[in-house]
């Protein structure tokens, strides 16, 4: 935020840089999973979702419910490493995400997804 309270929009170059770094991170995660404990797999995916939300927010995403989900992901990734039931936590997050997305205008009604 700037002192006046206005949000600075990142340039296309800045967002592109973040996306390229995210893609690099994902490839490294993919390779690392062959050597790392299996339990790290879901955590890496969860963290990648978190990093993606951060980029989306920098690019202008303003959605309170999605921001709440991202904050929960932050707390999980940056907080103490405790062995609570990750599948329950992920179930909860996926359900919250579906509710958020159903009511969100982040999804437009135009066109189809393109691969």
């Amino acid at each position: 935020m700037k002192p006046g309270g206005t949000v600075t929009q990142p340039t296309t170059e800045e967002v592109t840089e973040e996306l390229v770094l995210l893609a690099t991170h994902l490839l490294n995660c993919a390779r690392g999973l062959f050597n790392e404990p299996q339990a790290y797999g879901p955590i890496r995916c969860l963290d990648a979702a978190r990093r993606t939300f951060i980029i989306a927010e920098k690019a202008g995403l303003r959605d309170e419910r999605l921001a709440d989900i991202r904050a929960r992901l932050d707390d999980f990734m940056c907080g103490p490493m405790e062995y609570h039931d990750l599948s329950d936590f992920l179930d909860e997050l996926c359900a919250a995400l579906l509710t958020a997305l159903k009511g969100s205008d982040v999804l437009s009604s135009a066109g189809g997804e393109r691969g």
Binding site: E17, L21, T24, H25, N28, G32, R44, D47, M77, C78
Partner: peptide, 12 residues
């Protein structure tokens, strides 16, 4: 930035 991209264990 480069180090973090090649180190999945660095969270932030």
């Amino acid at each position: 930035k480069l180090l973090r991209a090649f180190a999945p264990g660095i969270i932030q």
